[in-house]
Design a protein around this nucleic acid. Sequence first.
DNA 1: GGCCAGGCGCGTA
DNA 2: TACGCGCATGGC
Length: 292
Amino acid sequence: MMEFPAKNYDLAATLASGQAFRWRLIGHAWEGVIGKHWVRLRQEQDRIIAQTAGPAGNWDWLPHYLQLSIDLNQIFATFPPDEPMRRSMQSCAGLRLLRQEPWECLASFICSSTKQITQIQQIVALLCRRFGRPAAVPDGHEPVYSFPGFRTLAEVTERDLRECKLGFRAPYLLNSAKKLRDGEINLSALPRLSLEEARARLMQLPGVGLKIADCVLLFGFGFQQAFPVDVWVMRALRDLYFAKRPVKLPRLREFSQTHFGPHSGYAQQYLFHYMRTKGRKRGSLNIDTGQK
DNA sequence: GGCCAGGCGCGTA
DNA sequence: TACGCGCATGGC
């Protein structure tokens, strides 16, 4: 058990905002797996209480994953002072970008194309149950598994992956895992590259286009100006900045690169969350809480 | 029951 | 360069 100060942090919005797919709300606590650690998180005012079942080591992995030391106000100060951003920030103040393990993030988003978030959660759960390693859990808790590494997945068959509901994405994930295993792409080299170079590397992987590459760059590597544009963000830009005119995707991408400043990826996540939750009652988000 | 989902790759003009 | 289409599967 460990406590971390967490001012201006909305744990629920952060874990349920479609960045990561392994979190479930059980009662008032969020349960998930970070690396090899099963962990239960609970927020109480300005702190987050964390519990593991096995040895937690020095705990450094948790504040890093949750990005606890980020000063949100400094980031907000760089956002354009317009009405859409104001409304988005108001809808989920305290939403953070996580810092996920790059391969897990990449593999999860390869599974994400034309899938709803609940289905991505199911696919990821199946992959972990079938190919991951068991993590230490409390007595009597159902078993939980780590996310399988690319060396493990490179050895499975397309059929194995289709049984995990990957559908046409199965060969994408399999062949991406093989390319990493064979050293054709080295994820650990990406942080030293520019955004454009790192993006180009990722897009050499099958099933990874501009959108998925930007998700990985933002959620797995922390490139602050990666700006993934999916259908929700496209709607946000069209509705909020272009008066619902039928603006084409390349024009929206160009706008996103110039309008939102040095932390545009953060702005993107606020717009995404705002579009997906507005009009819904608070607490009725069976869309992405992971609740069964 | 039809539309849509945190898209991508490929063929065609 | 710019469309248009097929691809699996399941939520709503």
